[in-house]
Amino acid sequence: MDINIGISAEKRKASAEAVRKLMADTYTLYLKTHGYHWNVEGPHFQQLHIQFMDQYTEMWTAVDELAERIRALGYLAPASYADMAKISSIKEEDGTPDWKTMVKNLAQGHEQVAKTARDVLRVAEDAGDDATADVVGPRVTLHEKTAWMLRATAS
């Protein structure tokens, strides 16, 4: 069935591809955060264990919303980690770093997701894709705030 939502097929594809990248970055950061939640140790264990859980829970919900936006644009969302790993800007973690390195790595990950989300906003604006901008705009704010809180924790 044809999609007629007021955005050309070419612009819908550009928006969907941009959101796919954001979804992949978010999912990769989600996995890293969840792994850190399980494995964090040290003097700030309790605080970080809870903080990481709050972060990965929020990102899990966001991944679903991003996937649904891709589908609304008429494209398939990445459905495996292998698909996401190919397009993610965030790389998998090797080993288990100490708590402070975990916090620094996550701060950098949130900064990257904020940058990727900004790129999506530019594509969405060019496409006249207000719905994608509505989904993605709050992501920038959330990831910038989370990065700031993590940087403050690591200092």
Rank of each mutant, 00 (worst) to 15 (best):
W99K: 14
K86T: 03
R69Y: 00
A18Y: 04
T33I: 11
A24D: 02
E17H: 07
N105K: 15
H110R: 05
D119M: 01
K100S: 13
T33F: 10
A133C: 00
K21A: 12
N39V: 01
E68G: 01
S88Y: 01
Q51A: 04
V140K: 10
P138S: 07
Q51C: 01
A147D: 11
V40Q: 06
E92F: 03
D94A: 08
E58T: 05
G6C: 02
L142R: 07
T116F: 01
I90V: 14
G137T: 09
D129F: 09
A154Y: 04
I70F: 06
Y36L: 02
G6F: 04
A107M: 11
S8Y: 12
R118M: 11
E68I: 09
M84P: 02
P97C: 03
D64A: 01
T141S: 10
A67Y: 05
K11Q: 15
G6M: 03
K86F: 00
R151M: 01
D134H: 09
K145D: 09
S155E: 10
A67M: 04
T61K: 00
Q112T: 15
T146Y: 01
Y56Q: 03
L142M: 09
D134Y: 03
N4D: 05
M53D: 15
T26V: 12
H143Y: 07
N39D: 15
E17N: 15
K11E: 14
T33H: 09
Q51G: 07
R71M: 12
T101A: 09
G109M: 04
E92L: 03
F52T: 02
E17P: 09
W60Y: 14
W38E: 13
G128K: 10
A67C: 09
M53W: 08
D54E: 15
D98Q: 12
L22W: 08
K104L: 11
I90Y: 02
L22G: 02
R12Y: 13
A154C: 05
D129V: 06
K13N: 11
Q112H: 13
T57A: 15
A85M: 07
A107H: 06
P138M: 05
M1K: 13
K86Q: 11
S15P: 05
W38H: 11
K13G: 04
Q112F: 11
K86W: 00
V123K: 14
K21D: 14
A67H: 04
L22M: 14
A62S: 11
P138A: 11
M149A: 12
I50E: 15
K145H: 12
V40T: 14
Q47N: 08
M102S: 00
N39P: 02
T101S: 11
R118F: 00
H143I: 06
V40W: 08
A14P: 00
H143E: 07
Y56N: 03
T141R: 09
A82D: 12
M84N: 03
L76N: 11
T61L: 03
A107L: 09
H44I: 06
K100Q: 15
T28S: 13
Q55S: 09
T141N: 06
Y36I: 12
D119F: 08
H143P: 08
G109L: 03
V136K: 02
A72T: 14
P97N: 08
T33D: 09
T116C: 02
H143C: 04
M59T: 09
A114P: 07
V113S: 01
K91R: 13
D2V: 12
M1T: 10
S8W: 15
H44D: 13
W148R: 07
Y75K: 04
S8R: 15
D98P: 07
A9N: 05
A18N: 04
E111F: 11
I3Y: 13
R12T: 03
